[in-house]
Design a protein around this nucleic acid. Structure first.
Lengths: 355, 355
DNA sequence: AGGATTTATGCAATCGATTGCCAACGGCTG
DNA sequence: CAGCCGTTGGCAATCGATTGCATAAATCCT
């Protein structure tokens, strides 16, 4: 009404004038300062509403010496140039966005493209952001350490290794590997194939958890059951075929990603091996499709929403000058149908057979 | 060095002092103004470099009456509260981020949560963003129209319907349906089942393209072959089973999402129907897994990178006060193995059988 | 009632960079 | 030598909101 599509919006001075008070009073009234009596606040607020006033964030930030903004850095895959393929990245993003919104912070998004090094620094120094959230520390590890060493507010989402100089949040891959394996063991499975690329730190930890669970039952990991497979190929199929052809006997598969698990299930079925009747399969990630696959995937899920909140809370602590440590998220076992757990609809009880 | 982790950064005044010039001259020098001789520029730049100076974006934006920022609005699914499940959303995001970075714009990300209505307005009015990119117009259609009507710079990614009051970019679903269907027809298929929820505008258009392709061959769409299925369930399986049980004869399936296609393929195989030998299946979206499925999915792909660039360019036009229309992206047929195209490895030529 | 508080409000400086306008200076021409 | 022009660079206002300090008004206390 008052403001045309192109014209300037109303300023605080306009509101003050309309309310017959000074800009100072108007500012304080709109910020709910205790210095201003309720009656005056009401008048000012009404004037602001009538003029459709919105505070000019830029001016406020300049005066307040803050940006009320957090930058989220999303590394593009250096090889393909594509976005990070982490299946739940979008969910982290959503969780972080929500947590920040609640704290009245804006979320600035950037991909690491142009400046390989100076990049991080720039954001803080140019006051475009008060803090940084970095997704995945793999690349830039050195830049991160330096930045954190300088006391910049930075938190990292990624594999939660101990002894990092910067503050990070990630899921406990060791525990994840353990509970997945333990679940299979509890179902009576004893020969559990492990699918995944143990060169990746996350996967290596999951394997460690796999071994721990076996050890808890007095079993040891059979190297023949470890199938090192990259994530992105039709690796699941190849791995299963290799395993089956080699004659190695197995009655369960722990796939370190849901994609691998689905791929593996297909190969098994193609060979006439029933899932979960003959072989139990557990995945990792709990991607959206996991619930809609058939058989629905039993898999390891992570509390992403909590992760987002933790990231934000840690960053807030850092920005307030308080120290913040590294946190680890507990993974959770989601029981569906691909393992034939007795918990599920009684139809497919686990057969006693073993490969 | 000069600046401790917590201390303030150097200001323009500091640089000017160090270079023995006035702030005005320093500013002009750093902005490469023709008013300043090269010699002076060099001195100022050197001083800035030494002090590790970064322009204070907030101050600049206030003075320049701009935010050099574009807000990208990501609607959360109103039901699940989860993020939009569009499989290539992340790629759009990446493309938009890159395009904006090139134009020196920042990308502010937000989910539509708190303010259902006023939300969009807020961003522009509070000067946190100069323009808006909205992903998916389905919800908020009314708010968008109003906003665009007021002349706000807004572009929308979504179904490119004609006659919209706001500027949008999206893929040509009509053409997509056409080329998918035409491909199946070219392979000799004549009874093509259509899987998808025609209540969604995108899907409705794809169905329209399906009918157009059939009509071009003198055929008409058989209503019995239309299976209205929601995207997110195990709809593919249910639809196939329903279709097969009803005795309707079909030799091909056009699934309007890759997830549906995969689900459908599984059901077909479970019934002993070969893909692509007995039934050809074409999907839609070309999600990452499509290439890794077996059989690898023939599907419809969209030029996301181009879409991102178009969105940004349109928005720049709007922000410059120039009009910008709606653009349509041409979808592309990706031929893999699920249709048994003769183009692929000659092993599986389409059999002449029809269900 | 008169000084002491408390309450309500305004003045003016400030955040840091940008930019219109003007001044100083050197060189050049007539 | 006076006048003019082009170059170089500084002064000061500006963007809009916030806030320390001060003042005016109202209330209180003995």
């Amino acid at each position: 009404m008052v403001v045309g599509g192109k014209g300037r919006g109303a300023t605080l001075a306009d509101v003050a004038r309309a309310a017959n008070v000074s800009p100072s009073t108007a500012s304080r009234a709109l910020n709910d300062s205790p210095l201003i009596p309720d009656a005056t606040k009401a008048i000012v607020r009404e004037a602001a509403r009538k003029q459709n006033y919105r505070v000019n964030t830029t001016a406020r930030n300049l005066r307040r010496q803050t940006s009320s903004t957090v930058a989220l850095v999303l590394p593009a895959d250096p090889e393909s140039g594509q976005m990070v393929s982490d299946p739940f990245f979008l969910d982290i993003l959503g969780a972080v966005a929500d947590a920040l919104q609640e704290k009245k912070y804006d979320l600035l998004l950037s991909t690491t493209g142009a400046h390989p090094d100076r990049w991080f620094e720039d954001f803080i120094m140019s006051r475009r952001a008060d803090g940084l959230i970095v997704i995945g520390q793999a690349h830039h590890a050195d830049a991160l350490e330096q930045l954190a060493g300088e006391g910049a507010p930075v938190v990292v989402w990624g594999a939660a290794a101990t002894g990092l100089p910067y503050c990070s949040v990630g899921s406990d891959n060791l525990a994840g590997g353990d509970i997945a394996t333990s679940h299979l063991l509890a179902l009576g499975r004893r020969h559990i194939a492990f699918l995944g690329d143990t060169d990746l730190p996350e996967v290596a930890l999951r394997y460690e958890g796999y071994r721990r669970a076996l050890a808890a039952q007095g079993l040891s990991a059979d190297p023949a059951l470890l199938s090192r497979t990259p994530f992105t190929r039709e690796g699941g199929a190849a791995a299963i075929n290799r395993l089956a052809d080699s004659g190695t006997r197995f009655d369960a598969v722990f796939a370190t990603s849901d994609l691998l698990a689905m791929s593996a299930i297909q190969s098994l079925q193609a060979r006439g091996i029933g899932v979960p009747q003959d072989v139990s399969v557990v995945g990792y990630d709990d991607i959206q499709m996991a619930a809609h696959y058939s058989p629905a995937l039993t898999t390891i899920s992570q509390n992403i929403a909590l992760g987002g909140t933790l990231l934000v809370n840690k960053l807030m602590d850092l920005m307030a000058g308080q120290p913040a440590g590294t946190d680890v998220l507990e993974p959770r076992l989601i029981i569906r149908q691909s393992c034939g757990s007795p918990v599920m609809s009684g139809g497919t009880a686990p057969a006693g057979d073993r490969a």
